[in-house]
Write a protein that binds this DNA or RNA. Structure first.
Length: 876
RNA sequence: GGGCGUAUAGCUCAGCGGAAGAGCACUCGGUUUACACCCGAGCGGUCGCAGGUUCAAAUCCUGCUGCGCCCACCA
């Protein structure tokens, strides 16, 4: 052992202790400036903008997954020599954050109105400072290689300028308008919601049928929201419905109110459903609103913003859910209830933020006219400017952008970008851009509403780069190369970034690729939620298993677009893997491995050396390819399998034998070990940056893996003979171990053995390795073979004789042979049946037929061997 | 009501036309000086059900059943 290696390895404790090292390594990377992007460099650019986490709390496992993948992709590109920018940021998350702070206030027995708008907003900023700090800290813990100098927040001054700029541009292009419409209203949040902020669930209700009017001039309608009848201004029937021809154009009496309302004919009514007659409440139902428009019906608002009845009469002041049974009771008293159907399951909309049942409400709101924007957003994916991975999810995207309704963007909240429109005397309306003068004077006031939070996040791919200014960053890093996000916000965010990006950047797409990951679920595949109590906190894993283990676990579960179930066992497994890598590299260092020198020529290497080098090469290209396809789960498995099974369980054991030979052999082995570990550490670095960094800098003396070169395959032709021989060694060793295990030979006990036919298999030079791995030793003078068997290899058959000192377990051996025999007989029967079928031999490709023939021959030989061995066994 | 996806070992999932795989769990055996966060050996599946296409089907097609997700203004 050289002096250098012993000095190096004393640095490494016998187990990987993430907690003590991660923070220090991360700080070193930041200090070295590795994560900073230079827009003026000559390198090819790679830019990925973070899906900004909401400042509502701390990061959850979904974020940890997203960040692990983004960091892995970015680190690989950086190692490949790209100018990488991973831009961090956070989202003000309007309604969500306002709700959090309002809840906090409620705990103090206060509401936002007690504070007033200015003070409340101030309070939210305080919350943001605290929550944002937590998030940034978690990102450091995870090892996110983000450019901290470019950190952004959706309500930063620069990003707010972008909001004003695009609002004004859309306004002037007629793509933003204000209109009185039926919108989704949350009576708890007291704000309008866009369509996608409403979640429909199948709820239990009651469908009641009510008779309007009297006698021949009566008609029966059905409803699940009885209280809305107070605002009815018509009954509608289908124009061709013969049952109601006599009523069209007449009026019927609306119960409880005494108002006379017309019966109108409208195509929208389905004569097949219910009675074929519909009550029309233009102010409280979107369909009815449209019917009202077509027939110039008045819209009667009967509820306030809390969904409390305002219609004069006995129900005034009742909440909608109190009014409903009250109205039904009153109708029943008057004999107006014709039928009741309960339970009646129907889809009910809920506020995605608080779960309250949404109330359709007629109000004056701002909208984005999406048709032209959505068309462009669809086309960009259709013509391949932007690629969605996995492609199956593109269909969902098209379904949505092709059928999108106008987007209600005004929110009756205080936290967010205030709508930049001023109203003045004589109905004057002025949209104020970032550089415009704010109108002043008597009678001017700004719109009190703020914008939907997704309005500003839709600008993130370019507002973060300085738009609307023509910055160097914008020129260099737009379009972003990749967006990594969950499929659950495909509509909320991705589609809207596409719309606004294409619009603001003159048709240039916001990103070339979109990778959609799945949701992180609990061990049994259920969604994690606070109410279920099955939430796993990433911080807990970071503390107990380390960042590498957390990241590897998440990446290993990430199949494109598919959800994953995670559990502590997985995290522990990943931690074990890190520790395995740690000790394997430590072992290589103990052997004096170094990655500094050149590899010896192929002629000077053993079959084992050539085999592991070829395998390393194969893994390099395999992993590289899978990175290109975002096949994280598969590339993690490939690396796990290579490192643990091939490198540690086989090559390292063979290397021990080679090291024991000393001399040139040991020198060559050190070089091979150094080379292979150098490669595997580089490959693993994007996934598990900390442990690899620590090991690699020790192994190579290099500055940092963060800026080390990404490995590429040598293109050297794989040595098929070496591969075949090592496969032979593996089979032979495994067979001997299996035999020993069956025979109950203690694992540590060396057994005298004689191998014959070895030369035929070309295994002579590997004999000492085989002896070591199979724990056999050269036959001594008193050798008496008490057990023997054959192992069929591709180069021949090896006959193995073992001296078990007369302790052969005949029963165990007979059992094994019987099992082998049964398997071989089944195989023989199957293959012969196949080969006996002329259709198969005629139509199947020659190589397939040859393979089946080979299998049949092997099976036949196995049967022969097993039968002979069985016959040789003593009778008991 | 539309659309999409999925059903493979006890669990979580790969495989998607030519010999059923991985990790974890489980059983047995281990003081094998890199690692017990380990090593070795093993157990475990008529690939949801029923048809069809094919020389050949877990893999393609049809139907059914279960589960999941997305979209939706049938009162």
């Amino acid at each position: 052992m050289t002096e250098t290696s012993s000095r190096q390895t004393t640095d490494l404790p016998p187990a990987w202790e993430p907690a003590t090292v991660e923070a220090e390594l991360y700080q070193r990377w930041v200090d070295a400036g590795y994560f900073g992007a230079d827009p003026h460099s000559e390198k090819p650019a790679f830019c990925i903008v973070i899906p900004p986490p909401n400042v509502t709390g701390s990061l959850h496992m979904g974020h940890a997954l997203e960040h692990s993948l983004m960091d892995a992709l970015t680190r690989r590109r950086r190692m490949q020599g790209h100018e990488t920018l991973w831009l961090p940021g956070m989202d003000h998350a309007g309604i969500a954050t306002q709700n959090v702070v309002e809840r906090e206030l409620a705990g103090e027995g206060r509401s936002r109105h007690d504070l007033g708008r200015e003070e409340f907003v101030e309070r939210v900023w305080e919350w943001k400072a605290q929550s944002g700090g937590q998030i940034l800290n978690q990102m450091r813990r995870l090892g996110d290689g983000v450019d901290w100098s470019r950190e952004r927040f959706t309500m930063d001054e620069v990003l707010s300028r972008a909001v004003l700029t695009i609002f004004k541009r859309l306004f002037e292009d007629g793509l933003i308008y204000r209109a009185e419409r039926i919108i989704n209203w949350c009576p708890r949040c007291h704000t309008a919601l866009s369509d996608i902020e409403v979640e429909h669930t199948e709820d239990e209700g009651e469908l009641i049928s009510i008779r309007y009017g009297h006698g021949a001039a009566s008609i029966v309608v059905a409803t699940t929201r009885a209280e809305t009848m107070l605002g009815d201004t018509a009954v509608a029937v289908h124009p061709d419905d013969e049952r109601y021809q006599h009523l069209i154009g007449t009026e019927v009496e609306l119960p409880l109110t005494g108002r006379m309302i017309p019966v109108v004919a409208d195509e929208h009514v389905d004569p097949e459903f219910g009675t074929g007659a519909v009550k029309v409440t233009p102010a409280h139902d979107p369909n009815d609103f449209e019917i009202g428009q077509r027939h110039q019906l008045p819209a009667l608002t009967i509820m306030d913003e809390r969904a409390v009845i305002t219609a004069h009469g006995p129900f005034e002041g009742l909440d909608r859910f109190e009014a409903r049974p009250a109205v039904v009771a009153a109708l029943r008293e008057q004999g107006r209830i014709v039928a009741e159907k309960r339970p009646y399951l129907h889809a009910v909309g809920h506020c995605t933020r608080c779960g309250t049942v949404v109330e359709p409400r007629l109000s004056l709101q701002w909208f984005v006219k999406v048709a032209p924007l959505a068309k462009a957003a669809g086309d960009a994916v259709r013509d391949g400017r932007t690629t969605i991975h996995p492609p199956e999810l593109a269909k969902r995207y098209f379904d949505w952008v092709d059928n999108m309704h106008d987007w209600c963007i005004s929110r009756q909240l205080w936290w967010g970008h205030r709508i930049p429109v001023w109203y003045g005397p004589d109905d004057k309306v002025v949209c104020v851009g970032p550089d415009d003068e704010v109108p002043e004077g008597e009678g001017w006031h700004q719109d009190p509403d703020v914008l939907d939070t997704w309005f500003s996040s839709a600008l993130f791919p370019f507002s973060t780069l300085g738009w609307p200014d023509e910055t160097a960053d914008l020129a260099r890093f737009y379009p972003n190369h990749l967006l990594v996000t969950g499929y659950d916000i495909l509509f909320f965010w991705v589609a809207r970034m596409m719309m606004f990006g294409l619009y603001a950047m003159d048709g240039a797409q916001p990103f070339d690729h979109v990778y959609l990951h799945g949701l992180v679920r609990d061990p049994s595949g259920k969604k994690m939620s606070k109410s279920r109590g099955n939430v796993i906190d990433p911080l807990d894993w970071l503390d107990r298993f380390g960042a590498d283990a957390t990241r590897f676990t998440l990446a290993r579960g990430a199949n494109p677009g598919a959800d994953m179930a995670i559990s502590e066992e997985w995290a522990a497994g990943s931690r074990n893997f890190g520790n395995k890598l740690w000790n394997a590299t430590r072992f290589a260092l103990l052997q004096g491995a170094t990655a500094a020198g050149e590899l010896p020529s192929r002629e000077e290497l053993t079959d084992a050396d050539r085999w592991i080098l070829d395998l390393t090469d194969a893994v390099v290209s395999e992993v590289d390819r899978m990175f290109e396809d975002y096949q994280f789960a598969k590339l993690c498995d490939a690396l796990y399998h290579f490192t643990w099974d091939e490198l540690c369980d086989w090559y390292l054991e063979m290397a021990k034998v080679q090291m024991a030979e000393g001399g040139e052999r040991a020198v060559a082995t050190r070089a091979v070990l150094g080379h292979v570990f150098d490669r595997v550490l580089r490959l693993l670095h994007p996934l598990i940056p900390f442990v690899t960094e620590r090991l690699w800098t020790t192994l190579t003396g290099g500055e940092s893996l963060v800026v080390a070169e990404w490995p590429t395959a040598t293109g050297q032709r794989a040595d098929a003979t070496a591969a075949r021989r090592i496969a032979g060694v593996q089979k032979l060793v495994t067979e001997v171990r299996r035999f020993r295990s069956d025979q109950g030979v203690k694992p540590g006990q060396r057994v005298p053995a004689r191998l014959s036919g070895v030369d035929a298999a070309g295994l002579t030079e590997l004999a000492s390795g085989i002896a070591s791995l199979a724990r056999i030793e050269a036959p001594g003078d008193g050798f008496t073979a008490s057990a023997s068997f054959e192992v069929a290899l591709s180069g021949g058959t090896v006959h193995v004789e073992l001296d078990l000192s007369g302790t052969v377990d005949v029963a165990a051996e007979r059992k094994r042979l019987a099992k082998d025999l049964a398997a071989a007989e089944k195989e023989l029967a199957g293959t012969e049946a196949k080969l006996g079928n002329p259709n198969f031999t005629d139509k199947a490709p020659a190589e397939v037929v040859a393979k089946i023939k080979a299998r049949r021959d092997v099976a036949a030989a196995d049967i022969e061997r097993s039968t002979a061995r069985l016959a040789r066994l003593p009778k008991d």
